[in-house]
């Protein structure tokens, strides 16, 4: 038992094309609404606090992933942090070389558990270092729309 006959000519190796245009909405939720409204309206970054684990979640969540408690306390965590790790991405989403490589980083904010993944700007790749202090650069208030892209990038502080 197995395959006895085989395709032996490329001309016989046929394919059929198919695609699926997927479009979705993603409900931001209670915690996300609070987080994005704080950035949009007041230009501040907020986290949610788990008092029993002594953790401030960033991005904020409505529940603690450690103890499963519902979180109701919120604090401002400031807009300054440090580069926990970074990379210089040389290819686009589709894999083509980027003319201008992008620096992406996980920025840890002091006092918060977690941080934000974002672009670094106003700095060259060779000047970027783990541990480097950075701060968020926000779009002008009129251009903010309640998105993670309301933060343009983080720059050296």
């Amino acid at each position: 038992m197995s395959l006895v006959e085989r395709i032996t000519s490329f001309a016989d190796a046929k394919v059929w094309y198919g695609n699926l245009p997927i479009e979705s909405l993603y409900t931001v939720g209670i915690a996300g609404e609070k987080f994005f409204r704080a950035i949009k309206d007041r230009g501040v970054i907020m986290g949610s606090v788990c008092p029993s684990c002594n953790l401030t979640y960033l991005p904020p969540m409505m529940y603690c992933e450690r103890c499963f408690a519902e979180l109701e306390e919120w604090v401002e965590v400031g807009t300054k942090g440090t580069v926990y790790t970074y990379t210089v991405v040389g290819v686009s989403l589709g894999g083509a070389p980027l003319e201008q490589p992008e620096i992406l980083a996980l920025i840890k904010i002091e006092g918060a558990h977690g941080g934000l993944v974002h672009r670094l700007g106003e700095v060259k790749p060779e000047e970027t270092e783990i541990g480097m202090p950075v701060e968020a650069v926000l779009k002008p208030k009129k251009d903010r729309e309640g998105s993670i892209l309301d933060i343009k990038h983080f720059k050296p502080a």
Binding site: L93, E102, L116, V117
Partner: peptide, 9 residues
Amino acid sequence: IYNRPLRAN
């Protein structure tokens, strides 16, 4: 919501 908008590879 938090990561995909960056549109990075």
